[in-house]
Amino acid sequence: MKTFLSLLLDESIKTKAFMFKNWIMAKRNLFTLFEILFWPSISFLSVGLLAEFVNLQPRMRAFILVGVVSMSTVQVCQLDVAYALLYDVWSKALKHGFIAPVGTRHLLMGSLFVGILRGGLVFITLMAASYIIFDFNFTSPGILAIGLFVLGLFLSASMIGILVSILVLTIGNRAEVAAWSLVSLMLLICGIYYPVSILPYWIVVFAKLLPITYFLEYYRGFYGFEPTFSHVLLKGYTAVIAYLFLEVYLMKVALKRAKRKGILLKLSE
């Protein structure tokens, strides 16, 4: 029993270490403040005002606003997961973390927690702004629906963040661009401002592979948009959990490869 408790304590301290790092770095750097305030506000206001200008019906405006709020939330949350490695890469201090007795689970869980905190802040801020500025009630589907939707977004964000980390461990510094571009590409495919049904059929194939597609369809369903796919919530969660398991495994493989190829050292020089 004592061994189990001490093991649990050890796990939580190591996870907290990565939370601590991401939290301090987020607090101290201006660009991280821009990420949660400036860029989400800009995209929210510009898209929201455009919707006003073209005089969209409330239903259509709901479609657009759900998209823009989701995009900013996912973007901010996934960045924190990617930052777990990128902060060390930028500091050239990657080897110090990997010489310590920690696993990828600590790194991912710790950074995801801060990502959820920052992403959650963006979500709540934009949800409130939607109501105040554009008279759009984000909470009308109910607490459970919001909870399931937001959890889906966070899990999808961590999926993207881990993918960025895998790329960093595989191809090094060049992969950092993925931290900003990968999410935009995915959001383009999953129908952030439009239903996926309008996309060419071969892009719909890719959209079907992305869990965010299903989560967006799920939430928009509450505003009168019939989902293109069936069982969206089940499909979304099944896909995102499967991807997360696969990615955690791939990250371990990538780490082993990085140790074999010397990438870990190159990223610390």
């Binding site: 304590l9 050890d10 301290i13 190591k14 907290k16 270490a17 601590f20 790092k21 301090i24 770095m25 101290r28 750097n29 902060y87 060390d88 930028w90 500091s91 050239k92 201090a93 080897k95 110090h96 973390g97 010489i99 310590a100 007795p101 920690v102 610390s268």
Partner: peptide, 28 residues
């Protein structure tokens, strides 16, 4: 391990850096 040309997280203070690495070794 300690290396020459030391590099650590740039925004963290001396104490915070030490705290972070101590936590990685399970200290609390």
């Amino acid at each position: 391990l300690s290396s020459g040309h030391a590099n650590f997280l740039w925004s963290m203070s001396v104490q915070e850096n030490l705290k972070y690495y101590a936590m990685l070794y399970g200290l609390s």
